[in-house]
Design a protein around this nucleic acid. Structure first.
Lengths: 314, 314
DNA sequence: CTCCTCGCTGCTCATGTGAGCAGACTTGCA
DNA sequence: TGCAAGTCTGCTCACATGAGCAGCGAGGAG
């Protein structure tokens, strides 16, 4: 295509998309046949001169979703549009909303749903509609007694998901990470805790997010780890945590000793379920999102456009 | 339109614009009739959920051009798209290019074209193609002996436009602004200078830009004015200059004494031509662009999207 | 110089899409 | 509860559009 045709295709596109003229009218205006106009428009599209965006908080990017399924082997992918989004809070909110939509539309509805906790899942739980399912039981899959002022976020998440789904929540009454291995083993030996974990293993599906390995981590906010702890994990290659367990870019446990003190399902146990839904959004989670997908921790990923493109780049 | 329909229209838009499905296929996927799908898409467009942009340096915004013609009474308007533009240099370059395109397409071709000088017009002259016209004579309409290192920009502009148009340039051999009124009058009395000005008055069309009233002004760079001079002009209400003459937001001369020392056509003389083409781009020129349009200095405006929208706001 | 190949043009035809309309339905009010 | 007004639905029909094809012409090889 020569320079003249390129310019003509732009003129044609202006008349077609901005002025709503028919290809025939454009042909008369530019002294071309209508077939030539059609071809020019097709070329303008194909060359990427025409960008069509859907501006809506609930808009998704289907082509990116397809590429994630095909190129990264995911069973399903939900990618929310980042068009017109300024803050990372809005991005997270949109993604949580999309995950709530996904759960609502999910068929068959899981009888038992294992959930982790965190900012993203809490928001998801708030976005769910009452009656999104009828009779979904929810069980926590990792420890979540919150130590700080935001007490109860972990519990509130599971309870909200269960209540709105017409079922009941089973909480895992344990801290996320214990200081001593012995304490952790004692807690897991407790009959109630052991029962909850056993129940969690039997869940039909798991729903979890991931956290970044940096100072904004919920584990620091909740007092389970110090900033120094996280710095050390990063030095060992940690990119983030999933159900409380820190992994490197390949999805391997970074610090087995720490991992042994972490209460809840192991990553291998999570991987045993057929339906593993990860909800991960935001720039700071790109590395951990990559690790989660790479290591097959999730079968379904709900994420934002930028994160998805990052996954497809690598 | 209720919430459900809004969501459906977004889903439909995704399938239609991103997946290239037909409305009929979308109907089957969403369990709707194809007419309903058509209506949903129409509503999505009408509600502004669909944004179509033409991404190309030469892309124009025809609807904005029309509004400028209709609402601001311009004979013609060329508005270049700002989509994907980061720097103001690029914006200026695109606008200069568009002005060059406009000149090239102009019919009937003016036999004599009066031009001013400045960064924008220089760039325009460089964007013109050889043979953009056959036999266009160019005459400078305001003083332009450059006092600084960038010597010859004013002359080069006129010469390039003339040469590429197969004609010759007539330069106005005078400084833009003189220190003393007597000197200015003496210069204008000079036979050559008087002849050039007389020739300029007879031009079929004028082509000029406008400068902002701030420290980036070409008059400061060229040494005709100091930063303090400009600050004083701003205090008196100046928003910028046209053919070397500083005007306020209504298009009136701000400082008659200064104006009397400025060599070249007066603004009223410029207004006497039927075809007055102004080329004005960039954030810093919004106020002066407004003044130029408001006071009828130009009959044709070539500008960028943001400036055009500013003009339509007021 | 001639022939062959390739790409572009303008066409036919099948399909996709928007305008307009009659009937069903909901909504608001007495 | 009943009626009127307005809204939504699914249709027909006319128009707009893209796919595919035959013919033309430019450009290169022999």
């Amino acid at each position: 295509m020569d320079e003249t045709d390129e310019l003509l295709s732009i003129r044609a596109a202006e008349l077609y998309y901005e002025e709503n003229k028919t290809q025939d009218e454009i042909g008369q205006a530019l002294r071309l046949t209508r077939w030539k106009v059609g071809r020019l428009l097709a070329q303008a599209k194909q060359r990427g001169f025409i960008r069509i965006e859907i501006l809506h908080p609930r808009a998704r990017r289907l082509p990116i979703e397809r590429r994630l399924r095909e190129e990264r082997g995911l069973e399903d992918a939900i990618v929310v549009s980042a068009a017109g989004v300024s803050s990372s809070e809005e991005l997270q909110s949109r993604t949580a909303q999309a995950a709530a939509d996904y759960l609502t539309a999910l068929r068959p509805v899981p009888r038992t749903l294992g959930v982790s906790w965190g900012r993203t899942l809490f928001e998801l739980s708030q976005h769910l509609r009452n009656g999104w399912a009828t009779g979904v039981n929810v069980v926590q899959i990792n420890g979540g007694v919150s130590l700080n002022r935001r007490a109860g976020t972990a519990a509130a998440t599971a309870v909200a998901i269960a209540q709105k789904g017409g079922g009941s929540a089973t909480l895992l009454p344990s801290p996320a990470i214990l200081e001593h291995l012995a304490t952790k083993e004692a807690i897991e030996a407790d009959r109630v805790v052991a029962g909850v974990i056993e129940f969690a293993r039997s869940a039909d599906a798991y729903l979890f997010s991931a956290g970044p390995a940096d100072h904004t981590s919920v584990h620091i906010e909740s007092g389970y780890l110090t900033e120094t702890d996280v710095d050390l994990l990063v030095q060992k290659g940690a990119v983030g945590d999933v159900v409380g367990r820190y992994i490197d870019s390949e999805g391997n446990i970074v610090d087995p000793a720490l991992d042994a003190r972490t209460v809840g399902l192991t990553l291998d146990e999570v991987r045993e379920s057929r339906l593993r839904i990860a909800v991960i959004a935001g720039r700071s989670k790109h590395p951990v999102a990559d690790a989660v997908v790479r290591s097959g921790l999730c079968s379904v990923l709900v994420t934002d456009e930028a994160t998805a493109l990052h996954l497809l780049d690598g």
